[in-house]
Design a binder for these strands. Structure first.
Length: 418
RNA sequence: GUGGUUGUGGCGCAGUUGGUUAGCGCGUCUGGUUGUGGCCCAGAAGGUCGCCGGUUCAAGUCCGGUCUACCACCCCA
């Protein structure tokens, strides 16, 4: 029954799964910190123009996937569809424009109004990093290597790295002209999508999956040849560094990526556990224009999809980190002993122990069943007679043995033994 | 946004060619002589059969619409 299902493309993350989310976030935080990155938290929504200018007005994301609304002050706001633009907006308040390097990471929800499907939600979550303010091949390589290390630490083996270069803006004009000249001749026999791509974003033709289109794409000119020597050298150095860092990768000119702001290095990580078409992470070097800034700010970064990482972990049979069992379960057979149990539990918890207990009036049998289900290794039992004798029974659940402990020693005894 | 599939108690499912009070497993709760769990047994709670409309004497079962979920495409993480 879906009477109170969340809106399409969103999901409730229950405790049974949220442990795995936390694990990924903690792993990311640890790994990225060791590279000198610090966490940056930016708003969930921004002025719409932050994304329009940042991502490029022609991109699919900006044109039809953004959740845009007007607030009471007449401001146009948008739920962030990705993390980079907001991070860059925030960083303009630092001296990053003067060339000071900023290393930040983030995680949190992103929003895109797409049709939900395998590994795609309308509210989805990304873990991402941005290294902003500098531009060098070795920075790109370090960033990719960090992603590689993160995935391994997160228990994700078998990820495949693909990289490519997009050159710089000046390189792209002649390359684009060559592509246009070529595809214009064949466009009549290409798919409808490619026909619109010819006008809107010719680069996207290169990763069309249609059989017929692919054959034509095979014969397309190698656009990298039109890039400047500097751009080619940049890419060569990235590849050399990755090899020296033992990051396995392959190069593919099909990898062009959808956002306009990318320059030089672009990369994508896929995993065959999800089918080859689904990327678990992607990123690259960019130059981003922001409102009020005359010059673009350089940076390199990536974003990984949390839901997709979790899908891969599940496919690989990685353990799901659920809630840990309590150290001890407290049973009270009458009101007075339940009151004492509540106070004892509070003391134990303040001392760092995890305690479960029954606070409602229930039969002994029911409480024992609950204790058993809680998987706590020890159970404390007391009722009227124990209260009168100022003792409590401690039962070891695995072998059923039990002993009596004086009330005055109870706290110390439990702190030592459970 | 385009196309395909789907929808029965918390979860997983069965419901024959439309026909009496909609079943099963797991889970939950309560018991199995008065204060001891895991096994077993008994009983109980819990569903307007996604929603709306139609056909019919009669629909969970047929028809239409709609919503959701899943899958593919587009695009992306």
């Amino acid at each position: 029954m879906a009477a109170f299902a969340p809106p399409p493309g969103t999901a409730d993350i229950f405790p049974a799964e949220s442990g795995s989310w936390r694990f990924l976030e903690n792993t990311a935080s640890q790994v990225f910190s060791s590279y000198g990155y610090g966490e940056l938290r930016t708003p969930i929504f921004e002025y719409t123009e932050v994304f329009q200018r940042g991502l490029g007005g022609e991109t699919e994301v900006v044109q039809k996937e953004m959740y845009t609304f007007e607030d009471r002050g007449g401001r146009s706001l948008t739920l962030r569809p990705e993390g980079t633009a907001g991070v860059m907006r925030a960083l303009t308040n630092t001296d990053v424009a003067n060339g000071t390097e900023q290393r930040v990471f983030y995680y949190g929800p992103m929003f895109r109004g797409e049709r939900p499907s395998a590994g795609r939600r309308r509210q989805f979550h990304q873990i991402g990093v941005e290294n902003v303010g500098r531009c060098a091949p070795l920075i790109d390589a370090e960033c990719i290597a960090m992603l590689h290390n993160f995935l391994l630490k997160a228990g994700i083996t078998g990820a495949e790295f693909t990289i490519n270069t997009r050159g710089v803006a000046a390189d792209r004009a002649p390359a684009e002209a060559a592509l246009r000249e070529y595809f214009a001749k064949h466009i009549d026999s290409m798919c409808p999508d490619c026909r619109t791509r010819l006008e809107r974003n010719i680069w996207r033709i290169l990763d069309c999956k249609q059989e017929d289109c692919r054959k034509i794409i095979e014969g397309a000119p190698d656009y990298v040849e039109f890039f400047s020597d500097e751009s080619k050298a940049y890419f060569e150095e990235v590849k050399t560094a990755l090899t020296r860092l033992n990051v396995p990768f392959k190069v593919s000119s099909r990898l062009v990526r959808g956002l306009d702001y990318y320059v030089h290095t672009v990369f994508e990580v896929t995993h065959n556990a999800l089918g080859e078409q689904i990327a678990i992470a992607g990123g690259g070097r960019y130059e981003l224009f922001l409102p009020g800034e005359k010059r673009p700010i350089p940076g390199v970064g990536f974003a990984a999809g949390v839901e997709r990482l979790l899908m891969v972990r599940e496919a690989l049979g990685a353990p799901v980190s659920g809630g840990a069992a309590a150290d001890c379960f407290l049973i009270g057979l009458d009101g007075a002993s339940r009151m004492e149990n509540l106070i004892l539990a509070d003391e134990l918890r303040r001392a760092g122990k995890s305690v479960a207990l029954e606070l409602e009036e229930r039969s002994f049998k029911a409480q024992m069943r609950a204790a058993n289900r809680s998987q706590a290794p020890f159970t404390l039992i007391r009722g009227e007679s124990e209260m009168a004798q100022k003792i409590a029974i401690i039962k070891k659940m695995d072998d059923g043995s039990q002993c009596e402990v004086a009330e005055s020693d109870l706290l110390n005894y439990l702190l030592e033994h459970i």
